[in-house]
Design a protein around this nucleic acid. Structure first.
Lengths: 249, 249
DNA sequence: TAGTGGTCTAGACCACAGC
DNA sequence: CTGTGGTCTAGACCACTAA
């Protein structure tokens, strides 16, 4: 008869409510962030991690396998596990502020509109709202080195986000305001990209000739709960901005 | 001495050289492709799969976990595993032929140039070649419903791919030729997107006014061995083509 | 309460890389 | 040869969901 409840094994032994494999991942991430582990350095092997953290091999494996999927480490059979080179963040959903920071530039933008609007049924539809719903609309002009390079219009449900019309978005980013002040976890965005020509208003704002080709991006941004939070239309001067994408087969 | 070869257990029992978890994945994929399982249907539970395929629970889990990462199935704790809805293939590296097929359209294109060229140092650099290297250049006009909507120029190392100048690319796709005839495993692409204005030649080819805004995509396509295989410049009529991207936080 | 997925054990053998 | 990652076992308990 197969049996034996094996009461000798204390079992899970989660020290602080966190699964063991996540604790291991955290420890490795931390060593990388703190600079103790640099790209190319070898990470402790499965067996070593299992011993260090007092877990089974499978658990240590799980931890490393997930880190590999996230691109944090690279594993080579018969050789070992290594810290992956710092990767360019392809296809990452980032705010303007974050994008600038990742390029080592200071973000700079000017709010040119911030009010509750009503009667833009196409935009409301993107947010999954009835056509006449009130929405917060925030329009900002982005620039670098005093040269304008993009106009961004953001729309959100007025019912939930009306406070944003007075938020200091000149200073702090909309993303961080949503995440910190509103407790919203942004998760992913579906984006449509096409090209368009500058009309009179855009030409003026962006300081380009009328008819100049511009890159247009329309983003529907979702929360972790898969609810639409934000709709953004961005118009970019194509001479100052290129979109990078990585595609996989 | 730790020992005990456990000769009672037949062990791996890979039936055809394929790991058990991959066999399970294959079986599930097949049932989905064949229409036996439709989106929303429940997939056999871990325990059931383990029993059916005569493997341990962990192995069945591994199979399902990987399918979930690929977006093939969705798992809900306490409920079960379900076939995921047919997803739009975001950020997938696909040939024109494949893109058309995924939209249910017939691909149609005309070769307007196919020769060995030389002396395009900027393109050569994209392929990681010396500036004066010979390259195969293939230029094609893409259309749908007899309306042109894109011009695509492909460049490859002439040394390796000179045979392509005579390939029947009007009929079969360049991707499938590379993959099947040349045995090259395409893996990913880095893509730059911007907007540009139609010059005289493009206006003529694409049947748009001179100066019309166009979407330009420049792809560097890599093999699984991380070698640059292909450089593609695509110019798209922005009134007939939109680029879709999904970004993650 | 029954069934599901999530975590975990304490090992095993295999394939592969490097010395 | 040793050490690595890759696959696998035969179970276990936990957390969660739905009936």
């Amino acid at each position: 008869m197969a049996m034996a409840v094996n009461s000798a094994i204390p079992q899970p032994r989660r020290k602080n409510g966190m699964p063991a494999y996540q604790r291991i991942q955290y420890a490795i991430r931390k060593r990388i962030e703190d600079g103790h582990l640099k790209p190319g350095d070898t990470v402790a092997s499965e067996r070593e991690l299992a011993r260090l953290h007092q877990v089974s091999l499978m658990t240590a494996r799980h931890a490393l396998a997930e880190l590999e999927r996230e691109g944090i480490v690279e594993r080579r059979r018969g050789v070992g596990t290594f810290v992956a080179p710092p990767k360019i963040h392809f296809n990452k959903l980032m705010s303007y502020t974050e994008q600038m920071a990742s390029c080592g530039l200071a973000p700079s933008s000017k709010i040119i509109f911030a009010r509750i609007v009503n009667g833009e049924p196409e935009v409301a539809a993107r947010l999954g709202l009835p056509g006449d719903s009130p929405m917060v609309k925030i329009e900002r002009l982005r620039h670098t080195a005093n040269e304008p390079f993009a106009v961004e219009s953001c729309y959100l449900r007025a019912e939930e986000f009306s406070g944003l019309v007075d938020a200091p978005l000149g200073r702090s980013s909309l993303f961080s305001t949503l995440e910190h002040d509103y407790g919203i976890e942004l998760a992913y965005a579906d984006e449509e990209v096409d090209a368009t020509a500058a009309d009179a208003a855009l030409a003026e704002l962006l300081d380009v000739p009328r008819g100049a080709p511009l890159l247009r991006m329309r983003q529907v941004i979702y929360s972790a709960q898969r609810k639409v939070v934000l709709y953004v239309v961005g118009i970019y001067r194509s001479d100052r901005h290129t979109l990078f994408i990585r595609r996989f087969r």
